[in-house]
């Protein structure tokens, strides 16, 4: 009964889409990397760095969109580092990725302390405001959820479309997918596997950072430690859940966000109050695992994912 009330409330769906937005950015970023054949475990750290960089830029006086751009550039810089180590040098993608997450996270906290040595509670910025789209946002329930969000959320949905079109409708996307499936085929056609893979990791990392920046610039208006809180790892799972397809990954992100929004609301119901709140916190992750098991059985992993390619090797 309570559940039905929650599911019919506009605020639940609005929250779902809001929670999904940063996941969509980062999931698309990870998906691009993996489609080209590189697993980017730096995602968690890059999101932290993006969250800080965007917020700090705005706090220092730049505009909001400039802040987003700066977050993206920081992410791309980390992506460059990751791709240099994993693509031309062919190092272990696990080790490089996890190392990058540790590096980016620590570097962010260090920078925070350097920039704001005296501060006890982090300062707030003027975050993105909700931009309702006339008429459409008046539709009951889904109107506010889909059409009364911040501009970054609209951008996230547009991004899914853009990634999808690029992957399946352009020569670039074709080359990118081939690099993740059989790099030898790409090389034999005279294209550079190194350039394609590095490009994918750099752009993908930039998108992950924007996902992080969404947290400080749109969902909240300030930066906290532990803010990203495992969202990066969730995105890795969402790519698998989505079978490396942008549309299905989007559905996964929304589904996970819905679980998250739901658990917060159930905690406040009379029944929910009797159950330890940790159980609810666990629910989205638990259900994600169940969904992952159910969905990813038949998924086609890019055949050359995590396989380094060295030209002219015997």
């Amino acid at each position: 009964m309570d559940l039905i009330d929650i599911l019919l409330s506009a605020s639940f769906w609005t929250a779902t889409i809001r929670i999904a937005s940063p996941l969509i950015f980062a999931t698309m970023g990870e998906l691009i990397c993996e489609r080209a054949g590189v697993l980017n475990l730096g995602i968690e750290g890059i999101m932290v760095a993006g969250a800080f960089a965007g917020w700090m830029a705005v706090y220092s006086g730049t505009g909001l969109w400039t802040g987003v751009a700066i977050a993206m550039l920081v992410g791309m810089a980390f992506g460059l580092l990751h791709s240099l180590l994993t693509v031309p040098f062919g190092l272990s993608q696990h080790v490089v990725g996890l190392g990058l997450t540790l590096l980016a996270t620590s570097l962010t906290y260090f920078s925070y302390r350097l920039a704001l040595p005296q501060v006890t509670s982090p300062p707030k910025i003027e975050a993105f405001e909700v931009l309702p789209i006339p008429v459409l946002s008046d539709i009951p329930i889904i109107g506010p959820a889909l059409f009364a969000q911040t501009p970054l959320t609209y951008l996230a949905f547009a991004l899914v479309l853009a990634v999808s079109i690029t992957l399946y409708r352009t020569p670039l996307g074709l080359a990118l997918r081939a690099a993740g499936e059989n790099p030898a085929a790409v090389a034999a056609q005279g294209l550079s596997v190194t350039a394609l893979r590095m490009g994918a990791v750099i752009v993908g990392s930039g998108l992950m950072a924007v996902g992080g920046a969404f947290l400080t610039m749109s969902a909240f208006d300030s930066f906290f430690f532990e803010m990203v809180n495992g969202r990066g790892w969730i995105c890795i799972a969402l790519v698998v859940f989505g079978a490396w397809k942008p549309g299905k990954a989007l559905m996964g992100a929304v589904l996970f966000a819905a679980f998250d929004a739901l658990q917060i609301r159930i905690q406040q119901t009379p029944i929910g109050a009797n159950i330890p709140y940790q159980v609810f916190l666990m629910m989205p992750y638990f259900l994600s695992i169940v969904a992952l098991v159910a969905m990813s059985r038949r998924a086609e992993v890019p055949a050359a994912l995590m396989v380094p390619f060295n030209k002219g090797e015997r």
Binding site: L174, A178, E181, A185
Partner: peptide, 13 residues
């Protein structure tokens, strides 16, 4: 590339 069509493989690059 196994997961692509014949046409896509030929056109690649």
């Amino acid at each position: 590339a196994d997961n692509m069509t014949v046409l896509e493989n030929i056109v690649l690059g």
